[in-house]
Computed example of a mutant assay.
Amino acid sequence: MTEAVIIGAVAWHSRLIVRLALGLVVLALAVLAGVILGETPLPVSQVGDVLAHKLWGAASTVDPIDAGIIWNYRLPRTLVAAACGAGLALSGLVLQTLVRNALADPYLLGVSAGASTGAVAVTIMGIGAGAIGISAGAFAGAALAFGIVAALARAAGGGSGQLVLAGIAGSQLFNALTSFFIAKSANAEQARGIMFWLLGNLSGVRWPDVGLALPVAVVGLLACVIHIRALDAFSFGASAAASLGIAVRRVMVMLLGAVTLMTAVMVSLVGAVGFIGLVVPHAMRFLVGARHGALVPASALAGAVFMIAADVVSRVLIPGQVVPIGVVTALVGAPAFALILIRNRNRA
């Protein structure tokens, strides 16, 4: 029996390594596609020349305008898209596991709406008098929103269904606050820019944003990897996790803190992009199973690839115009959301 268990574990880890290697290859190809494709498609050779020149100082004959598009615009945009997709997918995975609700994700639970309100309050209302950055304001708004939603759900009975309903109410509240801040303090030009940003926009992303998004995504991934055993235990409920020796309160605080941080930073950079945290974890459960040792890295990789693909589609869907990336993710996420509802009903 012990030998069979060992053989099974070795086989599982071998499959996991192969899947991760394949996922990294797919991610690399997605990043390359994100740099090549756009309003003006660029040859792979040009991209290679620019990267070789910028990274290793190789001689380059690429046109300076094309080099600027590749290095200063498309590459940082694609890297931030990957970081945001990974962070939002991990956030949805953690929330679904901790609250044991298939419909939990930062968008539905009001965390994204709270982050948007915090970011807009800092940007338009001038809260913090310049001492608070947009990401810090988004973090404060996300934490406040989740606290209100959790308190409302507890007052309503504490079930996972009440948490989702409380999240919907919280989303409406903070979306209304955001609209109020815009109506009160923004001029017409600011209002247009913010409304476009709230639907998801990567057009203004540059290298300093990469320096913020990538480390936050890595920190969130490491937090999930460190607590893989705890996430597996939480799949059976907090009581089961406690019986297995998991420090429930400490682990929940750390994981929810990571979720809040990732959601806040990503929203502050690209806006409130919905459905990634809902759809990607479910798709990965179907492909790799429910064990978080495979599910955590698979969700991060799939979220990154999905966000890059959505960004590419947003750039090429309408010639000469960039579609908000949140529109693209919603076109995919809304039908997937319906399928999840039907699947859960059939299971009940």
Rank of each mutant, 00 (worst) to 15 (best):
S171M: 13
F275M: 08
M266Y: 04
L202R: 05
V122N: 02
P41Y: 03
R343K: 13
L75H: 09
G237C: 11
F181D: 15
D232G: 04
V279A: 08
A300P: 03
P43H: 02
N72W: 05
L93V: 07
W207Y: 08
I325G: 00
G92Y: 03
N72V: 04
A240P: 00
A131E: 04
F306Y: 00
P281N: 12
P335I: 07
L51W: 09
A300Q: 04
I7C: 08
L90H: 03
R249K: 15
V316Y: 10
H292C: 06
M307W: 12
L24D: 03
I318H: 12
L214K: 08
G193I: 02
I276N: 00
A283S: 13
L79Y: 07
A59L: 09
V328M: 03
M252W: 14
G333F: 11
H227F: 09
V99T: 15
A309T: 05
P76S: 15
A338R: 11
L152G: 12
Y73P: 00
I276M: 02
A176D: 05
A9H: 14
G274K: 10
P76T: 15
R347E: 10
A156T: 04
F139N: 04
Q172K: 01
F306C: 01
G167V: 13
N72D: 12
V322L: 12
R249W: 01
P208R: 06
M252D: 10
A330R: 00
V219N: 01
M252T: 14
M252C: 06
